[in-house]
Design a protein around this nucleic acid. Structure first.
Lengths: 339, 339
DNA sequence: CTGAAAGCGCTAACAA
DNA sequence: TTGTTAGCGCTTTCAG
């Protein structure tokens, strides 16, 4: 079966290719009669326009890239859904790129995004990323870019985030109110603003509560493979924290497993709160208190901004900063001893 | 900043575009000296080839489509990782399309795949899909297609699945051995082979155990919104099952929540086993017995087959059928009364 | 080893 | 209202 294109349609209808092209795009220049004939033959022959030819000519691809660390993560998969829901209404395609938390991958991906393959980029940076050069190079090509959730400092463009500092504060105060005296914060990166901001909030709350800075425990699990081991080490240390804030979702399972294995009772021995959009949070043992990010909405907001940047050259993305607040859901994992 | 393309390189180096093109592709026709000059200038000017121009000319896009119902699902997100891992080694891009379990969406997506945008398609069909026409139309364009996990009958092409029937049998026998007398099977589709096969296995086990066919309960939750309500109804019925097989992951949370709310104890009042790749299974309350699909491997195998089909025209996808077995992980949710 | 020229499928001036 | 033509950026004969 040979591919049917505009030329084939033109020949069969004894019309010129431009007439066909215009008819297909419902141009006012073409009579209703010919339009009808064209559409009919097109659907009859199962004609599907070649998007690459069109992109090449029009210099726009009607495609956006979403660059993210991982798709096996509730936050990101929900964010993708939010992004797609907007892209759909705009008639755009979504190309998903995974950095797997590696800076090198992210760099390669952004290079590819300079090719004309996409009209804009939504990005949540990898936990390794701590430089802005690769992103600046993309911007130098005038490709609109919007950060969502995990932004990179030093880049002037729109970002959609949640209120990380306040939530760090909130999480810490929640633990303090539930009786924790030495809560610890578990981070996955030394550079990610989401981790830093959440941690700053945590620290601020503890300092305010009169806990000396040197007693504040912060733990870095920057490597997936050693995470289990690291968490166990902490839980077995003589100075074991009595509360834990998981800065991201993937810390939850290792923490629970370690506690179960070491017979450390949550919440009696240690209280746990996590930044997570896990839908299984209420059915965990025990049900997990979460700070839940509006993942879907963040995706939607970021995509909405990006399309404004793509469609209106007058729209200045640099000025845009949207903060959508997260919410605390209290569950058993942080209940006080009385319960 | 104007886009730098081959022509720009050619002008700056006083060479022809074809020489540049060949040099960039490391052709044997070009001297090492000019190759070096070209590569140098290219990287200096940040040249990135336009993939659409190349696709148009070469009539292949180096891109594959992955069509799936949902990304917020552990099975599919792991499968994506498997697919990407293979695509990466082949230098292919992956375009992810979500049908959101709607046939209409799936149809539109497959139409788009006929445009030349992709060289091949990996698909896991929606729970609504029960016709093959839209897939046949794609095949008529000679676009290689491979099913993974959720296949459509009546289409001759490669498929990578797991041993659904055996696992249905296994799950049912597991419940029977743990003392269940009237286990029920919860499905999400009347047509999906994965659900049908798992259910057939379930039925076969029960019949073999001497349970009369009319006593075998099968429940259909085809609609996400009403799932919670439906599950509650079942759990409150006088003829409440004493065991439950969740045919897919997303049934788990509603079942657990309903049991908690209705004070139905798992596993004492009802035992639960689920087809799922949930990493939180061991930390649920109670830990969930699962039949775990090799999601990553299924993705890898499907992608590997697809690339064979794309790259070797002699390779006949129609003959390929790969079955990668799942594994049962026994946990508290199906423990016998003794424990 | 390098270059000229045609063309992938489509769009957009500009003519007619 | 329709047609002619040039060209998007790249690859690929075919000549030189």
């Amino acid at each position: 079966m040979s591919k049917v294109n505009i030329k084939v349609l033109a020949e069969q209808l004894q019309l010129s290719v431009s007439t066909i092209s215009k008819a297909l795009r419902d141009s006012y220049e073409i009579s209703d009669e010919t339009k009808k004939k064209v559409l009919e033959l097109a659907s009859q022959l199962n004609y599907v326009p070649n998007p690459y030819a069109s992109s090449l000519r029009k210099k726009k691809s009607k495609t956006i890239a979403v660059v993210l660390p991982e798709v096996a993560d509730n936050f990101f998969s929900l964010a993708i859904n939010g992004i797609q829901s907007i892209a759909e209404t705009k008639g755009y395609h979504v190309l998903i790129y995974l950095s797997h938390e590696k800076y090198a991958n992210e760099k390669t991906i952004l290079e590819d995004c300079q090719s004309g393959r996409v009209d804009g980029v939504l990005i949540s940076i990898s936990s390794e990323t701590n430089t802005a050069d690769h992103i600046k190079r993309l911007q130098a090509q005038n490709i609109p870019l919007v950060f969502f959730d995990r932004e990179q400092e030093g880049i002037e463009t729109a970002r959609v985030t949640t209120n990380d500092f306040e939530c760090g504060l909130l999480a810490a105060n929640h633990l303090l109110q539930r009786g924790c005296r030495k809560p610890a914060f578990v981070s996955i990166s030394q550079s990610l603003p989401i981790c830093l901001n959440r941690m700053e909030g945590f620290k601020a709350a503890l300092l305010q509560a009169g806990i000396p800075e040197m007693d504040i425990q912060t733990i870095y699990c920057t490597d997936d493979d050693s995470m289990n081991h690291q968490i166990k080490t902490i839980l077995q240390s003589p100075d074991r924290p009595d509360g834990l804030i998981a800065s991201v979702e993937k810390i939850v399972t290792p923490v629970y497993l370690a506690c179960h294995e070491l017979k450390i009772n949550i919440p009696n021995d240690i209280k746990v709160i996590a930044f997570a959009t896990l839908d299984t949070a209420p059915i965990l043992n025990p049900p997990l208190t979460t700070i839940t990010q509006p993942a879907f909405e963040i995706g939607k907001a970021a995509a909405t901004l990006l399309f404004k940047g793509i469609e209106k050259s007058t729209f200045d993305l640099r000025k845009e900063k949207v903060v959508i607040p997260s919410a605390l859901f209290e569950r058993e994992s942080t209940r006080g001893l009385t319960s």
